[in-house]
Amino acid sequence: MGQALPKVGLRPFLPADTSVLAAIFVASVEELTEDDYSEAQREAWAGAAEDEEKFGKRLAGQLTLVATIQGSPAGFISVKGNDHIDLLYVHPRFVRQGVATALCDAIEKLSAARGVTGLNVESSDTAEPFFARRGYVSEQRNTVSMGDEWLTNTTMKKVLGDNGPQSEAPGRPS
């Protein structure tokens, strides 16, 4: 039998998390996206966390959740406004251990409970299959400038609400 995945805890972002979340952001970009983006693109992208004060203000100004494993931060997600997933990053050591899933599950449930009918994300090429498996639909391809580099991503959207089995139409046998 396979080994059980560690339990993922969730908590709100605290200003003291800024340095470790910036490090998770950089490690995730540098190590997990190398099949989809060049070294120069990854360096430009990772540069978004160089100014930790600015990065911390960005996280504090959004709904940001931190995923923990055995009490240590393993990933984070932030939502800008009511319906835009701005950041979702998992430390490479914790990939495929349910961290991103736990973060997305929580944000989707919180958003739906607040009356939000859908979420959107500008997904990296690396994360696009993850979001697609969760029911996000590709809307358009984008090219964004980061420093001196151009990166591609995809705007994806998901309708929130009851995505379970549809009820039978009235008068039809089940």
Rank of each mutant, 00 (worst) to 15 (best):
M1L: 10
G2V: 12
Q3N: 11
Q3K: 14
L5I: 04
L5C: 04
L5R: 14
K7Q: 14
V8N: 06
V8Q: 11
V8D: 07
G9T: 05
G9P: 02
G9M: 04
A16P: 01
T18H: 07
S19R: 14
V20N: 05
A22Q: 07
A23Y: 07
A23C: 05
I24N: 13
F25Q: 05
V26H: 15
V26I: 15
A27L: 03
A27E: 08
S28F: 09
E30H: 12
E30P: 02
E30R: 15
E31F: 05
E31I: 00
L32R: 01
E34N: 13
E34Q: 14
S38V: 01
S38Y: 05
Q41H: 09
E43L: 15
E43P: 03
A44L: 01
A44F: 04
A46S: 13
E50C: 04
D51M: 02
D51S: 01
K54W: 09
F55A: 06
G56A: 11
G56F: 07
K57S: 09
K57A: 13
K57F: 09
A60Q: 13
G61N: 09
G61W: 06
G61K: 05
G61M: 02
Q62C: 08
T64L: 05
V66Y: 13
A67S: 03
A67F: 08
I69G: 07
Q70P: 05
Q70N: 13
G71E: 08
G71I: 08
P73H: 07
A74W: 03
G75N: 03
F76A: 09
V79R: 15
N82Y: 03
N82V: 00
N82S: 11
D83H: 00
D83Q: 02
D86M: 07
D86T: 04
L88Y: 08
L88E: 06
Y89H: 14
H91N: 10
P92N: 04
F94C: 12
V95Q: 15
R96K: 14
G98K: 11
G98C: 07
V99D: 05
V99E: 13
V99C: 10
C104H: 00
C104P: 02
D105P: 02
I107G: 00
K109L: 09
K109S: 14
K109Q: 14
K109M: 07
L110Y: 03
S111W: 00
A112F: 06
A112R: 08
A113M: 08
G115K: 01
V116A: 04
T117F: 02
G118T: 00
E122W: 05
S124P: 05
T126N: 13
E128I: 03
F130W: 11
A132Q: 11
R133G: 09
R134W: 04
G135K: 04
Y136A: 01
V137K: 07
Q140G: 01
Q140N: 12
R141D: 11
M146F: 11
M146R: 15
D148L: 07
E149H: 07
N153Q: 01
N153G: 12
N153S: 15
T154W: 12
T154Q: 06
T155M: 14
M156V: 06
K157C: 02
K158T: 00
K158C: 02
V159I: 06
L160Q: 01
L160Y: 01
N163I: 00
P165R: 10
Q166P: 02
E168G: 08
E168N: 09
A169S: 14
P170F: 03
P170E: 10
R172Y: 12
R172F: 12
P173M: 12
P173H: 12
